[in-house]
């Protein structure tokens, strides 16, 4: 009973943390654009949070650079369970054009587990919303 209440709350108001792991800013501005009036993900209860300790979903953009790797793991560990990771953009999914560069490790899944992949260079806000809604459906499925 209590668990179903928690799940209901989680599905209705997933709070996200936006974390640039070395992206070119294109996906970042599209993530922000998804929060603004034209696309407005707030109608799904999604709210941008400043700290990982308040977040349910980590939205990662960009390939993982060597320098950012330790921070990414730290931010992931700071996020309370259950947590979900969304990789936005081709670079976050696989490394994209930066794959093979000396300072790039590849996609987000090289470092932390990823729940949803949203490809695109840059991923359009429509695609981001679609990905997030699919993630919510997955959450609901989990809730039973």
């Amino acid at each position: 009973m209590f668990q179903s209440l928690v799940n209901w709350a989680r599905v209705k108001s997933p709070w996200i943390l936006h974390w640039n792991t070395g992206a070119c800013n294109a996906c970042d501005i599209e993530v922000l654009a998804a929060l603004t009036p034209r696309f407005d993900v707030e109608r799904f209860g999604i709210l941008l949070q400043g700290t990982p300790r308040h977040a349910d979903v980590i939205v990662c953009t960009g390939p993982v650079t060597r320098q950012v790797k330790d921070r990414l793991i730290r931010v992931y560990n700071q996020t309370p369970d259950p947590k979900f990771v969304v990789a936005v953009g081709t670079c976050a999914c696989s490394g994209g054009v930066f794959r093979g560069n000396y300072n790039v490790l590849g996609g987000i899944d090289q470092v932390i587990p990823v729940d949803a992949y949203i490809p695109g260079c840059a991923a359009r806000p429509d695609a981001i919303i679609d990905g997030v809604v699919k993630l919510l459906a997955k959450l609901q499925g989990k809730a039973g």
Partner: peptide, 11 residues
């Protein structure tokens, strides 16, 4: 700075 360094000029 340097968190975003990806090695563009080399690649």
């Amino acid at each position: 700075i340097g968190y975003n360094h990806r090695g563009m000029e080399k690649s």
